[in-house]
Nucleic acid binder design. Structure first.
Lengths: 204, 204
DNA sequence: AGCCGACTAGATAGATCGCTCTAGCAATAT
DNA sequence: ATATTGCTAGAGCGATCTATCTAGTCGGCT
């Protein structure tokens, strides 16, 4: 079941190329709007390979793409919140980085999962679960860092959810208005919430 | 160009039936996943009528559906924030109502525009603009009520954006996880922010 | 009555959709 | 050497997509 490592190929291997292209296209254009053929031509793979690796077809591929994209974003969260010892600074730079990125990609790449998540929420149970699992992994990571900063468990969970909602909503608003400022405004609100939670803790 | 009022028909008129069905289906299943035929059969209208009223085809219909859905939600915001004299209570009951609704519709109907907005943001400029305009109308309405509560303009704008992001992000998370609690958590955070803004104002 | 614009009605075109199918290649196992 | 396995390769199927087209109905106006 391991990915073929028999030949140390410079190309990432067909299966991974397919998944990577899927994650990118699904994230940018949505699940329904992205056709199988577009994925195959983007990943330079033949039809047969797709259904060899993903007998479940587009839906199975979609679920896997969500898992990969979720892992990529989780690594991003870890990089921001694990690198900085200060959760307030981490929160601030996370939102500022997000604002810079969404502007740099011309409002195309924000959350790689959000569009798909909304599309499939009431339609595909396996894909919905994959989205829920990805979101949960982000929330767990955030919550962990808040707890490590001395914030109690309940508040840490609330902060993680609040931060998630703020950035996802801000991505939506920014993409629709082609304006990065919602991300910055949401970021400032989150920074204030994190600071307030830390104050509550130390004043205890 | 007026909508035909010549006959006081009990049925809402073909054009409106098409738009209403579109708004509902687009909101629930997304833009790409909703076919023209599904809209026509849901609104009990023939092919010809659609292209008579919307020569621009699906895209023009989509933009109109966004406008209608945007207006419906604007009325909802007005009902909550105009009815209550207290912005804190309004904020709280708004989120609680949202949580109850998303659960009651089995996580199918949350924001009627969000899915479409993400789908078309980088694809259809007229639809993107319609989404931006709808969002802006909600934000303006929220901001107005915060200003009327005595909060300064800059903070009112920030609060409106914060509230928007919180509920949109919470809708996304709730639909993906099939759990209403994110909406409630986000609501509590917003209530706290509104209270803090009011305190700042009175302490000035 | 006769006309005309608004609207209904649906067959059909042409493209694209996800997917299946058979055939063949390359490397390993026997 | 031969069989087996893992993967490549793409033609093509039936279904479905959006949109166009022609024809016909209906109500109000002159």
């Amino acid at each position: 079941m391991l990915t073929a490592k028999s030949s140390p190929s410079p190309v990432p291997g067909t299966r991974q190329r397919i998944v990577d292209a899927s994650a990118e296209l699904f994230g940018r254009n949505g699940y329904t709007a992205t056709g199988i053929k577009a994925i195959l031509s983007a990943s330079d793979a033949p039809f047969g390979s797709l259904y060899h690796f993903f007998p479940g077809g587009k839906e199975e591929l979609g679920a896997e793409a969500i898992r990969v994209a979720g892992g990529t974003y989780l690594a991003l969260v870890k990089a921001f919140f694990g690198g900085s010892a200060n959760v307030v600074d981490a929160t601030r730079s996370f939102f500022e980085g997000a604002a810079a990125m969404i502007e740099a990609t011309d409002y195309a790449d924000a959350c790689p999962i959000a569009t798909v998540a909304l599309e499939v929420a009431s339609v595909s149970e396996p894909m919905r679960r994959a989205c829920a699992e990805a979101f949960r992994s982000w929330l767990d990571e955030l919550e962990k860092h808040f707890r490590e900063a001395g914030i109690d468990e309940s508040s840490s969970h609330g902060l993680a959810v609040e931060l998630f909602c703020a950035i996802e909503g801000a991505f939506l608003l920014s993409r629709a208005t082609r304006d990065p400022s919602p991300v910055l405004i949401a970021g400032r609100a989150c920074v204030a919430s994190v600071e307030a939670a830390l104050r509550n803790e130390s004043a205890r």
